[in-house]
Write a protein that binds this DNA or RNA. Structure first.
Lengths: 161, 161
DNA sequence: AAATAATTGTTGCATATGTCAACTAAATTG
DNA sequence: CAATTTAGTTGACATATGCAACAATTATTT
């Protein structure tokens, strides 16, 4: 077989492979598996269990330094404000955050992470980093860095569309 | 500043960075953005629009060669059988698949992708590959390969836990 | 063969999430 | 002051996930 033909076949195979398992589905599978294991561990080990979306919001609130209001979080999380509202309802019910009416603009609620909320964040971050430690077994730091770079790049490209 | 202290700070910073944006959340953001754009395009361009989970199942069914039954799909997709059942209800309602009672074992339903279903798969795969073409802009083939490798590796590691 | 167990699919229920539209209260603008 | 905009809230509806109980069918055991 000519080297050229060999090369073409390799390209074709690769193409077919990607066709067979599209990008989104490959990453989807990975996320699905990670989510499954993480949920399992959180159920076993965490004192207070909250769904992933709720944790993502709780953590995002804790990262913002200045006054946090619901509208901003909706933008940050790229969700509808009513969705954010219900996530906040759930978090407040569990006493992980609290709404404090803004004194200057009474339309606004300032969101504060409670002490209990901070503890939950600590626990979840610890669980996450322990899990990642295991999941990265067999991969080099360089590979992981490339992975992060690609993920960030794709996200940025997608944000423009 | 001593070199040792400098080194320690660098390590700490790295740690904090990862702490600040845990792996799952980085990939989650990427998936979220991709999902958003894909959904938008599917709404604009696809004749028949179906949610991502339904497509994932439809496609997974089409990939299986031998007789496909619901229980197997539940295993493949790692979901509860009742969830699969409802996804199948939705797909059947849209006439993308059909349930055919197994003649040998009347407990089983064989799942068949209809012609319409195959067309939907074609359209969605095309949309996906067009989108990925754009999202990969600025990344090298080598980086993408590493990305796939890492994703697959992490998925495999997670499956064992 | 009859009783028992296991398998496959189904249903009900609870929770979570996403999106849209209408609405209230408060602030801003002309 | 009247009209508009903004922030938050609520209701309605669609999608998705997981658990437990159940029915029908098949397989196994006695």
């Amino acid at each position: 077989m000519s080297t050229k033909l060999f090369y073409l076949r390799a390209v074709l195979n690769k193409k077919m492979e990607k066709q067979r398992f599209p990008f989104g589905m490959i990453i989807g599978r990975m996320m699905h598996e990670m989510g499954r294991v993480f949920k399992k561990r959180a159920n076993e080990q965490a004192e207070i269990k909250i769904p992933n979306e709720q944790f993502a919001l709780l953590y995002a609130i804790s990262l913002k330094e200045d006054d946090v209001i619901q509208k901003d979080m909706a933008e940050v999380m790229r969700k509808d404000k009513s969705g954010i509202l219900r996530l906040i309802d759930s978090l407040e019910e569990k006493e992980l955050i609290s709404r404090v009416a803004d004194t200057k603009d009474r339309r606004k609620n300032c969101l504060m992470v409670t002490k209990k909320g901070k503890e939950v964040i600590e626990q979840y971050l610890k669980l996450m980093s322990e899990l990642m430690e295991q999941l990265q077994q067999g991969l080099t730091a360089s590979e992981m860095n490339t992975f992060y770079k690609v993920a960030d790049h794709i996200k940025s490209n997608a944000e423009k569309l």
